[in-house]
Amino acid sequence: MTEKKSIEDYTYEEAIAEIEEILAKMESGNVPLDQSMKNFEEGMKLVAHCEKLLNSYERRISKVMEDREGNIMEIDMEQQI
């Protein structure tokens, strides 16, 4: 944890792993009160980030192809299947 990533850059798994780490530390009980409040805030931020990540997924079903020039053609196909 030398080069600390900003929470916004965490993947879902990374965020969850970070939360677990915080929880493990907290639940061991040996944390000064002010540090514990910092951890709590950090944890809540990570949870919020996870929720944001989950909500950022959008359903899209499409067919992709490449035309002769190598451009991507994407055709929605939710209705076709």
Binding site: Y57, E58, R59, R60, I61, S62, K63, V64, M65, E74, M77
Partner: peptide, 11 residues
């Protein structure tokens, strides 16, 4: 399993 899926079919 995961409704908000982004699926790209390469036929």
């Amino acid at each position: 399993r995961f409704y908000n899926i982004n699926l790209k079919l390469y036929p």
